[in-house]
Design a protein around this nucleic acid. Structure first.
Lengths: 186, 186
DNA sequence: CCATGTGAAGGTATTCACAGCC
DNA sequence: GGCTGTGAATACCTTCACATGG
């Protein structure tokens, strides 16, 4: 009988592994890297585990994020409620197109692009870049100058930034393009 | 003097490495895994290289893809022109919401969800799932039954599929959530 | 000479098996 | 008995240095 079935206070590495589709020793190895928060013969206390993971992932403090580029993708991101799950809050949106400035989307009013310079005093340290490829590097430069510390870039290109800035580039089309590679010819 | 500067027919691993921000030996090792298509003392013939990479990545044949879930994200994907770059073509869109069926978005007419059953005879082997988390597994089940071979899933959850089906899950909120982990506390 | 492709060295992540604790 | 945490074994990936070919 699995621990998870005995009650809801503890869970075993085995049960966790089944949930996410990996092996039990991977779970144990990974957790043990951050400390010993399991009990032999019993499993992991679920509340404690959730607390530890939140601490490791820095999920205990809500982070404010800004969106630059309110096109189709940007609008979709503004309307997406899922960021809260990970302690993230999109609190500002910017666009260089004057026709979009002032619009309300997903509860956020679109601001002029020049307003990004005030990000630091507004304590916003994360930015989402959803602008066309041609504008991506210039946008990142502006964000870096504004004191941003992390960037999620949706433009399909490499962007240069100082090493202290963490940049994650997500090329959605390329993700889709990966699929045929794993599929038997046809 | 770099090969790339001598003309435009050949390029060295060194020059290539600088372009994408890696080391020259990584370029050579990776290429050599798929065969020897460089010339010692000269570099890589650019046309040949492009041809080989397209072959490896299966980019020489255009793949048809279907979109399921025409919400904000789905609409953004339909309007996004970048898929062509990778030999992908979104040729159909489906939604379970009757109010969306029939609409034209990005040149595609939204069809009823039940129409996915005809995907195989329409020779569509890739699918993009942009439905709410609760509907993701059921959607994937339908797609698998319809003979789909690869799925790009935007719902923030694991989905189960037979091993022959390649599933890539892309949790956009989680990508953004990764950033604080790499940033010095604050 | 110049740049590739590769065997070898070194390091890192996976996988296993089991001692120790509940 | 059951489950964790960990050292040992294994596989993998990265990095280097150089022999080889144009």
């Amino acid at each position: 009988m699995l621990s998870a079935e005995r009650g809801c206070d503890h869970i075993s590495s085995q049960a966790l592994a089944e949930c996410v589709g990996v092996n039990s020793w991977q779970i144990r190895k990974d957790f043990s890297y951050f400390g010993d928060f399991g009990t032999p013969g019993v499993g992991y206390n679920i509340e404690r585990l959730a607390r530890e993971i939140k601490k490791i992932l820095r999920l205990h403090v809500i982070k404010k994020a800004a969106l630059v580029g309110v096109g189709d993708l940007g609008s979709a991101l503004l309307a997406y409620p899922g960021f809260r799950t990970y302690g993230l809050d999109i609190v500002a949106a910017f666009d260089s197109d004057a026709r979009k400035v002032g619009k309300m989307i997903g509860g956020i009013q679109v601001e002029e692009i020049v307003q990004v310079s005030a990000l630091e005093e507004r304590q916003i340290s994360l930015a989402i870049v959803a602008v066309p490829r041609e504008a991506a590097q210039a946008t990142v430069d502006q964000l870096v100058a504004a004191g941003i510390r992390g960037v999620l870039n949706f433009a399909p290109c490499k962007v240069i930034a100082p090493k202290r800035i963490k940049v994650i580039t997500l090329d959605i089309a390329m993700e889709l393009a990966r699929l045929p590679y794993y599929m038997p010819a046809g």
